[in-house]
């Protein structure tokens, strides 16, 4: 009887120790997560807040401080009136340039990649693996290698300092990525489906349209997000091959933040930075879940 109670209290003590340890572990886990989340979010928070603060107030209290003013002017200025390198039209033109560059380049490179991936996984022929490997090399070539050739080609095509030139560059450069992503994904679609469809009398295009494409949304989401954010965020080609009013937004941002007036207009720059970051951020917020899932399903293997 006494033994039993002792045992029970021992059990009880062990249980409380275990519970406390469990609690401490959870505390450490959540504590670390909160610290890291702060590190990740504070820069974003700073920019967002500063885009609504008064410029003088920022100058007085520093960039990182609780806002004591609230204004929307900075956004308007950044969008349409702020002066960058002589023209005072804000970022709007560059924003449209980036859209005009990113949307077609994303669509074209994704479409081509899907077709290529389909062929390289489901219509293999002698040497197709070798060709695929060659295409893959394109993923690894640093942009710096292609600067001179592109300058020459764009010049000859009359596409220097034009958004269309950038579209061309991003399509050609993107094909390697999109093909890789799509091929790796399509490989996991059973070949038997294609065989069954061929017996059913479907040809190259019908199989693509009716069988492959309906199964493709995970990888198309990945590819579109990857291409859109990659092209929108690209800077090297933008700054090399365009100038002034033709520049995409990344190049304009650098020009804006570098335009050294003596008072740093952090409010306007913050708004400009957010304008430049917003489209890929939105795409990511809506598609990020699918992006990670798709990336691990096929793209990275």
């Amino acid at each position: 009887m006494a033994d039993a109670t002792l045992d029970q209290s021992l059990d009880h003590r062990a249980a409380t120790v275990a519970a406390r340890r469990h609690f401490l572990t959870r505390l450490v886990i959540y504590g670390l997560l909160v610290v890291f989340a702060a590190i990740y979010l504070i820069p974003l928070l700073v920019v967002v807040l500063n885009s609504f603060r008064d410029q003088q107030e920022i100058a007085r209290n520093g960039l990182i401080s609780l806002p004591r003013s609230f204004r929307l002017d900075a956004w308007g200025q950044a969008w349409s009136t702020y002066c960058i390198g002589g023209t005072c039209e804000g970022m709007q033109r560059n924003f449209y340039n980036s859209l005009k560059m990113t949307i077609p380049a994303t669509i074209i490179s994704t479409a081509v990649g899907a077709m290529n991936g389909y062929i390289l996984s489901k219509w293999r022929f002698r040497g197709s693996e070798a060709l695929f490997t060659c295409m893959l090399l394109g993923v690894f070539i640093p942009g710096q290698i292609s600067l001179m050739p592109w300058a020459f080609i764009l010049g000859n095509l009359g596409l220097s300092n034009s958004v269309y030139g950038l579209v061309l560059i991003h399509v050609i450069q993107g094909i390697s990525f999109t093909t890789l992503f799509c091929r790796n994904y399509y490989v996991s679609i059973p070949d038997d489906l294609i065989k069954a469809a061929r017996i059913d009398g479907a040809g190259f295009w019908r199989i693509f349209r009716k069988i492959i494409l309906p199964l493709s949304s995970p990888i198309l989401i990945v590819t579109v997000i990857w291409q859109f954010t990659g092209i929108w965020n690209e800077y090297l080609f933008g700054v090399v091959f365009t100038s002034g009013q033709q520049q995409p937004i990344t190049a304009a941002l650098v020009a804006l933040t570098a335009s050294g007036t003596n008072v740093r207009a952090y409010d306007v720059m913050s708004a400009a930075v957010l304008i430049g970051a917003l489209p890929p951020l939105l795409i990511y917020l809506f598609g990020g879940k699918y992006f990670v899932r798709g990336l691990t399903q096929g793209a990275i293997k």
Partner: peptide, 13 residues
């Protein structure tokens, strides 16, 4: 006509 081991039914249809 052919019947496959994996059945090869078109999953989206």
């Amino acid at each position: 006509a052919m019947v496959f081991q994996s059945y090869a039914l078109y999953p989206t249809m």
